[in-house]
Nucleic acid binder design. Structure first.
Lengths: 180, 180, 180, 180
DNA sequence: TATGAATGAGTATTCATTCAT
DNA sequence: GATGAATGAATACTCATTCAT
């Protein structure tokens, strides 16, 4: 799974075949199918593992923050470690087995939950505009994913989160903040 | 090209092979390659044609509008007719020949140009917040593309633009508008 | 036929398709098959025409010469004008329709006939060694064809006959001449 | 490789496709490409193996002979076992991957080396005419290859070397020998 | 449990030949 | 007669999956 994770991160899900994965893992081609009965099974397993890690981190990091800005910072922190894998996942998600889509939805649900709560609090406190929670969430996700999926538009190489993360949060907060 | 356009719209670019396209077009498999010397050529041709149409419509529709809201409405009007094709293009763009990416960039450039101009005017008039133009544009594109690419999250079937277009514009305008 | 002759001379018989020939001839692809019902027919026609020209030249040129050296000089003169086509023919002869082989045999028969006569005369006169006529002929043909078929071993570009013809004749005559 | 060698020997390199080779080898079509990544790879491998065998035999057989006649006899002995394959190679060499031409050049170089040495000795001893070594070599190769490539002119079926080898050597020696 | 050779269905592409206009 | 779009069989190559050892 580590081998697959690494190759998927580098080359995407579509351009990596089972032979390459087996080779990277240092096992025989046939042995791969003893652990995962189909390629899709392997893909699902890798994505699920990734999903669980993200979920755990999301839960852990969000706990200590209550402001919307804090939640967004936590969100970026969650992504940071798996940024390349996550970007590949976003790009290829619609060509992957159904389960992959569910996993992604799950991950996003968790994030949305925290954003919803924080947003509601801030709205009640009169800090941010009273906008529909789902639109607020989708604006953030759309913006962030746009940067992640089209990374070559925004960085020559390296991390998009590192390079643009704070700008994105600042910008987003500026949009939603209620000027007094 | 119509056959390919139709199949690509329905099933995406990756799941449609040249046999299916030929069959849909009512010609033999071999005949396909008299018109387009490779599959990539065909893909490029279909996307280029789409790009030109969009460009023409964008130019035409944006002309008569000057407000930011007007431009966004025009943008949605441009997409409306090719919404399914456009959504598939967004999903698969990173697996398509290089030219496809250039076409998409071109299309977005034209849109961004109009949004930039309108936004600048509105900022000068004190109607909207003074935010960086590129972030403003990417926020809109990110939001819209998020809805288009993940359409099954937002509509059971049918048009996302039809169902959510106005909401998206209202929401976006609400975010950027300067409350007085 | 001129178009085909030209293309065959340049690129060989195997790498030229009927579309290229039609294009070179300035007619439509379909029209080609009004004149020649199959590609093989065309190939045969081109080779036959070439064969007739060579035969005529061979006959004409050999007439005035009686010495073996004179005949060999005449032989090279015959080839000179069609050297590239002839070389391609030698290379590809075994992949061409049966008739092509017969034509080539015909051409060689004519040459062999003149060489036989001259050789016999010279043997009777005690000028050259009394060797079997067919071996004498095949030695000359083998040597000449070896140079023509493998031209890149012997010239950078241009005519092999021009560059090496006289040497080949001198060498061959040296071999067969009876030292006194 | 044995299957390919056999089919190439019988039908030439151009008329044998990968399906036929796989079938002859008793494996599936796809399996062929596990062993050789392209058809050209297979062709190269078969020719290279043949080249090595010939080289080894050439070296071995030439060692014990010092006379020009001995070398020519050794040369024919080398070819004898692979006569059909070698003849096909000569016929098709100009349509084969570049490597094949290099292999053939290699094989001929080795032969030419031995012939050069023997010829020089015999010239010094006054046994044969003082002719240019390369022309001497090319005369022999041209003659021999002419018989091998056009085998149907010289034998109904079976081995050309067997049927005509000694005659060719006798004839060639007669040509080059210095009558005293 | 592991191996790795083999499978076999699939895919893009080529090209001589046909035929309605 | 001429056109040129269409045919359709052929060909090299890919890859997830299987299975005898």
């Amino acid at each position: 799974m580590d081998a697959a994770y690494s190759l998927f991160s580098q080359r995407g899900f579509l351009d990596v075949n089972t032979i390459d994965i087996a080779e990277e893992a240092g096992i025989s081609h046939g042995a791969l199918f003893l652990h995962f009965s189909t390629r899709d099974d392997l893909v699902n397993a890798v994505i699920s593992k990734f999903g669980e890690e993200i979920a755990k981190r999301t839960h852990h990091l969000s706990e200590s923050r209550s402001s919307l800005r804090g939640i967004l910072e936590a969100h970026l922190d969650c992504i940071r470690e798996n940024e390349f894998f996550y970007s590949r996942l976003l790009r290829d998600i619609h060509s992957l087995p159904k389960n992959a889509g569910l996993q992604l939805t799950c991950i996003l649900s968790a994030v949305s939950h925290h954003i919803f709560l924080a947003a509601q609090r801030e709205i009640e406190n009169g800090n941010i505009k009273p906008v529909a929670s789902d639109l607020l969430f989708n604006t953030w996700i759309g913006l962030l994913h746009h940067y992640l999926m089209n990374r070559e538009l925004f960085v020559v190489s390296g991390s998009v989160v590192e390079r643009h993360g704070n700008n994105l949060i600042d910008h987003f907060m500026k949009l939603v903040t209620l000027k007094k």
